[in-house]
Simulated scan of single mutants.
Amino acid sequence: MTADPYLSCPVMADAAEPRLDFGGTTPYEDYVHASVLHSLQKTVTKDPREMSFLVITQVMELYFTLLVFEWRHTQERLRDDDVPGALDALRRSAAHLQALRAAWLPLARMTPREFNSFRDALGEGSGFQSGAFRHMEFLLGEKSASLLVPHRSVPALHAELEEALSAPSVYDDVLALLARRGHPVPAELLSRDLTQPYRPSAEVEQVWAAIYCGEPGELSDLGEALTDVAEQFTRWRHDHLIATRRAMGAKTGTGGSAGVSWLEKRARRDVFPELWTARSYV
């Protein structure tokens, strides 16, 4: 006779009331530091839309930090030949990018008049000056020494970005892994000047085509996880472009950039380029 599994399950006791009295702060505050986060919103104008812009921008910055963390962890896993661990981190980061993209929704509904109501409060401030976003781009292979210039007055941040500029990108570590697995990645790519932006390679394109033509496995899974990240990052750039066009048209950006034309140029650039072009040969 088979025992009824439900009869052996413990009966849940009535839920206990949560503890309400803590000395000093609460464990939640000690861990999350919520009061610090909530103290960072310092509006300059009385326009309520400025608070939305400020909070959403700060949320984006937190996501930038999270993505840098995930991609550096991805690199650690790749260097240890732990592809499953790298896949986990890449898939998490693709989900983070989707959440990051959602932050544009309220900002993308701003009319020029609404944005102008607090735009002067930004002064020369611009997202172009975000150190965490620059670190993200460097990890994706979007390298440029000139982009360090805005951060020269913050030595610690400048040093961090200078190190990231000279270090391998996530894709550099992927190519090194493919070479270790016996794929014919050109030696000059493995020893290239890492401070320069990555340029597409016909040989790497054929490597990915061969991986995709073969039996599905962890390397094709790696290609798809990287493509998910590239797609979500490109969509984020496009969302930024559309939100900017809607709020300010073709006017000069707050930080003195060309605004929409600069964003259009960046949005046309593919991250992990051979993963897109190799599909034509599969």
Rank of each mutant, 00 (worst) to 15 (best):
E205L: 12
G249V: 00
Y212R: 14
Q232W: 08
R266C: 08
Y212A: 12
V204Y: 08
R192Y: 03
G255K: 04
G259T: 13
V204R: 11
P197K: 10
G223F: 14
W208Q: 09
K251L: 11
A230P: 03
R237F: 03
P184T: 11
S220M: 08
T234A: 15
P197M: 05
V229I: 10
L189S: 00
Q232Y: 04
L222W: 06
A258L: 14
R245K: 09
L241T: 05
G259A: 12
L222C: 07
P197L: 08
S201Q: 06
W208Y: 15
A250W: 02
P186Q: 12
Q232D: 00
S191M: 00
R246E: 05
A225Q: 02
R235T: 06
D193H: 10
P200D: 10
G249P: 02
F233Q: 11
T252E: 14
R192P: 09
R266E: 15
R192N: 06
W262T: 14
S191T: 14
K251D: 14
A225F: 03
L194Q: 14
Q196E: 13
F233L: 07
L190T: 07
R268V: 07
H240R: 07
F233C: 07
S220V: 03
P184Y: 08
Q196W: 00
L241W: 04
L263E: 11
L194N: 06
E205P: 01
L189G: 00
E224C: 00
L241I: 02
A247W: 01
Y198G: 07
Q206K: 13
G253R: 11
T254Q: 04
L190K: 13
Y198A: 10
G256V: 03
I211N: 08
K265R: 15
H238S: 07
A247M: 14
L189M: 15
L263G: 10
S220D: 10
S257I: 05
P197V: 03
E205I: 00
L219V: 07
Q206C: 04
P186I: 11
P186L: 11
P200Y: 06
L226F: 02
H240Q: 11
G214E: 00
